Amino acid sequence: MNDTANAVGKPPIIVRSADYARLIALAQASMDRETVVGDELMAELERASVMVDESAVRQTVQMGSTATYTTANGEARTVTLVYPGEADIEENKVSILTPIGVALLGLSKGQTINWIARDGHVRVLSIIDVGR
């Protein structure tokens, strides 16, 4: 993790090594189409700790994880983080190529992050549970 990430108040994150290369490729490809989301995903991946050990990532939001979080107004929501082709809002499956998907990646229970929504407003979310 670099000092810049700490300076803007982002918590440390962990990414499973099995997903890391695919996520890097996805971020690079999306930078041509969705510059903001692709750039943000790349920035998150660059500051992430990459872990091989499954036990180290078990309690963090990874691809395929289900996360329950609260918003700044206390509203709770449960979603599953997925690759773009698997996204389905009716099933609460959120793509990694969305601002909320990028914000969720690598967080663990108790962590809070500020993220920028598509409307340009800064939002806050706090992880209250992570499951598989």
Rank of each mutant, 00 (worst) to 15 (best):
residue 95 S to T: 12
residue 122 V to C: 08
residue 111 Q to F: 07
residue 63 M to A: 02
residue 31 M to F: 06
residue 9 G to H: 05
residue 56 A to H: 03
residue 45 L to V: 08
residue 36 V to F: 10
residue 57 V to C: 13
residue 32 D to E: 10
residue 115 W to G: 12
residue 27 A to W: 03
residue 24 I to G: 02
residue 36 V to P: 01
residue 111 Q to A: 13
residue 71 T to H: 05
residue 127 I to A: 05
residue 9 G to L: 05
residue 119 D to C: 09
residue 109 K to W: 00
residue 48 A to M: 07
residue 114 N to K: 09
residue 96 I to P: 09
residue 102 V to A: 02
residue 71 T to E: 12
residue 46 E to N: 14
residue 109 K to P: 10
residue 5 A to N: 08
residue 83 Y to C: 06
residue 121 H to S: 15
residue 64 G to V: 09
residue 14 I to Q: 03
residue 132 R to S: 15
residue 20 Y to K: 00
residue 5 A to I: 06
residue 15 V to H: 00
residue 94 V to M: 08
residue 81 L to Y: 02
residue 44 E to P: 01
residue 122 V to D: 08
residue 129 D to G: 13
residue 71 T to Q: 11
residue 80 T to K: 13
residue 60 T to H: 15
residue 2 N to I: 11
residue 4 T to K: 09
residue 2 N to E: 08
residue 11 P to G: 07
residue 21 A to C: 01
residue 57 V to M: 03
residue 23 L to Q: 01
residue 96 I to V: 15
residue 59 Q to T: 14
residue 46 E to D: 14
residue 3 D to N: 11
residue 30 S to T: 08
residue 34 E to P: 00
residue 89 I to C: 02
residue 131 G to Y: 00
residue 38 G to D: 06
residue 68 T to G: 08
residue 66 T to Y: 02
residue 111 Q to C: 10
residue 2 N to D: 14
residue 66 T to E: 14
residue 67 A to G: 03
residue 97 L to Q: 07
residue 80 T to E: 12
residue 84 P to F: 04
residue 70 T to E: 13
residue 90 E to N: 14
residue 97 L to K: 07
residue 34 E to G: 04
residue 56 A to G: 02
residue 39 D to Y: 04
residue 121 H to E: 14
residue 75 E to Y: 09
residue 115 W to T: 07
residue 109 K to M: 11
residue 44 E to G: 09
residue 23 L to P: 05
residue 65 S to N: 06
residue 132 R to I: 11
residue 60 T to Q: 04
residue 61 V to D: 10
residue 123 R to T: 04
residue 89 I to Q: 06
residue 52 V to P: 01
residue 128 I to L: 01
residue 12 P to W: 00
residue 47 R to N: 15
residue 123 R to S: 13
residue 103 A to M: 05
residue 25 A to L: 03
residue 24 I to P: 01
residue 31 M to E: 14
residue 79 V to K: 00
residue 31 M to G: 13
residue 41 L to V: 07
residue 105 L to W: 04
residue 54 E to C: 01
residue 56 A to N: 06
residue 39 D to P: 00
residue 65 S to H: 05
residue 94 V to G: 04
residue 39 D to G: 15
residue 112 T to I: 09
residue 130 V to P: 10
residue 13 I to Q: 01
residue 62 Q to E: 10
residue 19 D to T: 02
residue 118 R to M: 13
residue 100 I to C: 07
residue 91 E to F: 06
residue 46 E to Q: 13
residue 132 R to G: 14
residue 35 T to H: 09
residue 102 V to R: 03
residue 117 A to P: 06
residue 15 V to D: 03
residue 107 L to E: 08
residue 45 L to I: 09
residue 123 R to E: 14
residue 72 A to N: 06
residue 128 I to N: 10
residue 22 R to S: 10
residue 18 A to T: 10
residue 127 I to S: 06
residue 93 K to S: 07
residue 8 V to C: 10
residue 41 L to M: 10
residue 15 V to M: 01
residue 67 A to C: 12
residue 125 L to Y: 01
residue 128 I to C: 11
residue 45 L to D: 05
residue 132 R to Q: 12
residue 54 E to D: 15
residue 49 S to W: 04
residue 83 Y to T: 12
residue 26 L to W: 01
residue 131 G to V: 02
residue 38 G to R: 05
residue 123 R to F: 08
residue 126 S to M: 11
residue 57 V to A: 15
residue 115 W to E: 05
residue 40 E to Y: 04
residue 118 R to W: 02
residue 83 Y to A: 13
